[in-house]
């Protein structure tokens, strides 16, 4: 790390934590208390036997701030592992969104056509609406949602990013 690099970059950080009450509050409290950004945060249990959850956080900051974030996270007692997937070798990232589009006629047909191009699936449909499921990187999801706006977009629910390193290693 160089001393005074001021450019801010987004980093995806994977964190393995004990699945216990308050652990998410500790992580979120750390970010809000110290003024760090959270661009996306996902959490779910990943090992029932070992009682572990995995949190994926996308945050941004200068290299010094990112170092701080990782060190501060590591300090929390229920946290086992903190990995910066952005700098520790290649990783894959995915996000899922449910997108509701309401309308009729030409717009309805057009939304279906675009969904097909984006490989979005139809999960629910009424005479007046579709719910699409789309998976991909954040940019793809945002592009899809953007295209749906003029076609009757009424509601969006996104999961936030999950990420994992490529190759054979575990976290």
């Amino acid at each position: 790390m160089s001393p005074k690099q001021e450019t801010e970059n987004a980093h995806t950080i994977a964190v393995l934590v004990d699945n216990e009450p308050g652990v998410l509050a500790r992580v979120i409290g750390l970010f809000s208390g110290r003024g760090y950004n959270i661009e996306s945060l996902t959490v779910a249990e990943v090992s029932h036997e070992e009682n572990l959850s995995r949190i994926t956080i996308v945050t941004s900051g200068t290299p010094m701030i990112i170092e701080q974030i990782k060190a501060q996270l590591s300090r929390l007692v229920p946290i086992h592992t903190v990995r910066d997937l952005t700098i520790e070798g290649p990783s894959v990232e995915r996000e899922l969104a449910l997108v509701k589009v309401a309308g009729s006629g030409e717009k309805r047909v057009e939304s279906l056509r675009i969904a097909d191009i984006f490989r979005a699936r139809v999960l629910d449909s009424t005479n007046q609406s579709f719910v699409f499921e789309i998976v991909g990187d954040t940019g793809k999801l945002s592009a899809f949602i953007e295209l749906m706006k003029p076609l009757g977009l009424v509601d969006v629910s996104r999961t936030g990013i999950v990420a994992i390193a490529r190759g054979t290693e575990a976290l």
């Binding site: 701080q68 060190a71 501060q72 300090r75």
Partner: peptide, 11 residues
Amino acid sequence: IDPSSINKNVY
């Protein structure tokens, strides 16, 4: 002893 003290304010 606290890694978070390193490079917090001063490189």
